[in-house]
Amino acid sequence: MRGDFELRTQSGEVIDGGRGTVALCRCGLSAIKPLCDGTHKVGGFHASGGDRER
């Protein structure tokens, strides 16, 4: 995710993504949700819709 955004927890606290562009977890397996930690590769997760949806 790139651009002007702010990440918040469900209770409203701001999450520091650590950098201007972040990768969000879509497979649900990340240990640092909502951020991605690459675990989708272990789970064999594939996003539907391919490149465009990224």
Binding site: R19, V22, D37, D51
Partner: peptide, 20 residues
């Protein structure tokens, strides 16, 4: 620890934006 988070981002940028 920093590389776990940073490179999950970098891999997307590198594969799609840079190499693609």
């Amino acid at each position: 620890d920093e590389h776990v988070e940073a490179d999950a981002v970098h891999e997307q940028i590198a594969a799609h934006d840079l190499c693609g």
